[in-house]
Nucleic acid binder design. Structure first.
Length: 115
DNA sequence: CTGGTGACCATTA
DNA sequence: TTAATGGCCACCA
C-alpha cells in the first residue's frame, strides 16, 4: 500500500525532507545547502518547490530553511513567511536587519558545526 | 514533447 | 542598498 501522499513520489523530494529534518534547533540552513546535502547540488529551486508541497505529517522544521541572503523568502499567495520568522525567533535565533547571520547560525551536515 | 512557472542563486548596474 | 537579468531544473497543464 502506498503512502496516502501522492505528492511524495520522487526520492529527490524525500531527500530534501531528510536534509531539513536534520537541522537542529537554533540553527538555519539555506536552500542551496539543503540541495547539496541531499545530493543534488544546484537544485535549490527544487528544495523550495518540494517544501511548498511538504506534507505536514512529516512535521519538518521548514521554518529553519531560508535563502542564501539569510532572509525568509516571501512565498506567493500566503503570509506564512511572517510565521516562519516568528518561529525562528522562538528558537533563539536573532534577526539582524530582517536577516539572519548565517556565519553564526548556519548549520553544517557534518555535525561539527559547532558549538 | 512544448510551454509556463517557481519558498533559488550569482552577477551586474 | 534594491532591481533586473540569466541560468538552473523539476513539476504541471
Amino acid at each position: 500500500m502506498r503512502a496516502a501522499l501522492p505528492t511524495v513520489k520522487n526520492s529527490m523530494r524525500q531527500a530534501f525532507y531528510a536534509a531539513v529534518a536534520q537541522i537542529p534547533r537554533g540553527r538555519v540552513a539555506t536552500y542551496g545547502q539543503i540541495a547539496q546535502w541531499a545530493g543534488y547540488p544546484g537544485r535549490a529551486r527544487q528544495v523550495g518547490y518540494a517544501l511548498a508541497g511538504m506534507p505536514e505529517e512529516l512535521d519538518l522544521p521548514w521554518h529553519r530553511v531560508i535563502n542564501a541572503r539569510g532572509r525568509v523568502s516571501p512565498r506567493t499567495g500566503s503570509g506564512f513567511h511572517m510565521l516562519q520568522r516568528d518561529l525562528l525567533v522562538s528558537e533563539g535565533i536573532v534577526f539582524r536587519a530582517d536577516a539572519i547571520d548565517l556565519e553564526h547560525y548556519g548549520w553544517s551536515p557534518e555535525g561539527t558545526a559547532g558549538e
